[in-house]
Amino acid sequence: MTLPVALPTLTDDCSNCAALCCVAYPFDADEDFALLKRADIPCPNLSDSCLNCTVHADLLPKGFGGCVAYQCAGAGQRVTQELFEGETWRDDPDLLEHMTYALRVVRPIHEALLLLQEVSNLPIPASAKRQALSLITALCPDNPKSVHDFEVPEVQDALADVPAYLQSLAPFL
């Protein structure tokens, strides 16, 4: 399956992110998170001097299994490096809610792209592979400069179509 567009990087690269996952999402104090945290509030385990987790080496023993399981599929560094040109909410606190919102928009798109990329390895009919390519193309806007480029109907409609498409592959597996 030859891709008609260049896919973004779909693997995590925390060194090029702004610890967006540690800010964007809420934590429920349960078996996955040792504390309660609201969305758009930095985790108290983030270092004050940089964007590093102070308990990263001990996430499981400290009760942060949700952090261990989390994957952004490359959305964090894409938001930080491409949409915000390397700026961080730590450098400019006014960016915090814009960056976390962008992560919550871009991450599901990256997850869908990751799944659709795997379709190329499946023994499915050519028509199903063409449909995957069509979805991939729709999920990859040309030169996105803001989160709004990911919120256009073409991208959001394609994202909404991915679950049904993946379910349609079941008879071939």
Rank of each mutant, 00 (worst) to 15 (best):
T88G: 02
T100D: 08
A102F: 04
R90M: 12
F150H: 11
D91A: 12
T88E: 03
T54E: 00
C22P: 02
C67L: 04
S146D: 12
Y70D: 00
Q117R: 14
L51Q: 06
R107I: 04
L103T: 12
D58E: 09
F64Y: 07
H56K: 05
E31Y: 03
A29P: 04
S47T: 07
C50M: 01
V105N: 07
D40S: 02
G66Y: 02
A57D: 09
A128Y: 12
N143Q: 11
S49K: 07
Q131R: 15
G74Y: 05
I136C: 09
E111Y: 10
P108H: 05
I136T: 01
I41G: 01
F64D: 05
G63V: 00
F64N: 02
C21N: 06
A34G: 11
L36A: 15
E97A: 04
L20I: 06
L83R: 06
N143M: 11
M99G: 14
E154A: 15
P108K: 00
D149H: 13
D92M: 01
S49F: 07
Q117F: 13
G74R: 04
V152T: 15
V147A: 13
C67A: 04
H148A: 15
H148C: 14
C21Y: 07
H148Q: 14
R38G: 01
D92E: 06
D58C: 01
A69Q: 06
G86R: 00
K37Y: 03
N121T: 11
D142R: 15
F84W: 07
D30H: 11
L133D: 13
C140W: 13
L35C: 11
V68D: 03
C140G: 13
S120H: 07
V106S: 10
L96N: 05
F27G: 01
D142L: 15
Y25L: 02
E82P: 09
C50F: 06
